[in-house]
Design a protein around this nucleic acid. Structure first.
Lengths: 201, 201
DNA sequence: GTGTTAACTGGCCGACCGGTCAATTGAGGG
DNA sequence: CCCTCAATTGACCGGTCGGCCAGTTAACAC
């Protein structure tokens, strides 16, 4: 038998509802009343557990973004500096964004808000990534005349922005069929370009 | 001598103020009172000229996005299908986003809103771009084993997402100095990757 | 001059917002 | 058992929002 009172579960329910609402509608448009309704609790409970709407949003961001950074970390951990493992890391990253579209929305919101609450969470991961790439370059696995930082960025942008634009672009170009198929096609073509470029070899 | 009443100028003032407010704060957070204040008119005038806050936002989007599509069109018009001219088109696109960060913000808002008001505005331009690339491929200027649509996408993503993430990424990696220098560095490195790939040749 | 029309104003409305507060309730320790 | 304290509730607050409306004013056609 469960307790009639379970503050942990309540917090979790509020957080889940808040994540849904915030990522769907953004901070401004989401209302605490709506979040309370979704979570099946009263509005006052939100303030009791989290203090304010702003603190709740920060909590949501830190959690989600922390998970994102964690995934990135795992991705890099298992990647010794070879081109093949870079490919696998890229795939891991792509699949993660594919499975959790909330992540892409979160980062778009953070961009528009000029957010800096989560700035530090992925710093170490990024630096780690740069060093891995640098090692692969020195090992002759990757060309040495590109800055490893910008190489990493291109890598991230190609994966991330697809999920941000695919709906609009595929609609405009009348590319029909299930989204998953579009994802696969893009991924394959993007890999070719990223590794080998668009010029003929 | 100017008229005391100039509805055209009033409309323009409201539109300009609305664009600033909406792109800064988003649809929900921006208020009609604030827009009226910025434009130096009364709130009622906004409803008189545009009907509702929502219609005003749509008007702003259509205008901005239309200009964006126009720029894209110009970019492609002067680009006969050679690799060198593709490079110049990419630079034109990059410079345009660099000069008008509002464009990047607008597209982020549209993504988050699931916007479809502007869906058709750039359709022709996109198709045009795809055909240009296809022609370059058949001419042997670009490799033929990548889908021209996804090639175009990669092109767009690499330019666009930089302006969406550069602040966060450069802060995390402690890349200091003027933003313009970072833009140049990224642009050069990104070009290398896009054309030649990250693998050694 | 006069009438018509549209630009423009200020005041107002109901709805909803985030947040507060006093009161109630249940769980757990002594 | 009761005492304590946190979890929880619902009523309520001041403030802002988008939108409306009645009235005023300037331009213009005749």
């Amino acid at each position: 038998m469960v307790n009639k009172r379970d503050p942990e579960a309540t917090r979790a329910a509020i957080l889940a509802a808040a994540e849904d609402a915030f990522l769907e509608q953004g901070f401004a448009e989401a209302s605490t009343s709506d979040i309370a309704r979704r979570a099946g609790v009263t509005k006052s409970l939100i303030h009791h557990h989290f203090g304010s709407k702003q603190k709740l949003w920060t909590e949501v961001k830190v959690r989600r973004f922390g998970e994102y950074a964690q995934r990135q970390q795992n991705m890099l951990d298992q990647s010794t500096p070879t081109a093949e493992l870079l490919r696998e890391s890229l795939e891991l990253y792509f699949r993660f964004l594919q499975k959790t579209p909330q992540t892409v929305r979160l980062m778009a919101w953070m961009y528009l808000e000029g957010d800096n609450d989560c700035g530090d969470l992925d710093r170490a991961v990024l630096k780690n990534g740069v060093e891995t790439i640098r090692a692969a370059q020195e090992d002759g696995q990757l060309r040495k005349d590109v800055d490893p930082r910008y190489l990493l960025f291109s890598f991230l942008f190609l994966a991330q922005h697809w999920f941000q634009s695919r709906e609009h672009l595929c609609r405009d170009l009348e590319m029909e069929g299930p989204v998953e198929d579009r994802d696969e096609e893009y991924f394959e073509n993007m890999l070719k370009i990223f590794f080998e470029g668009v010029l003929p070899r």
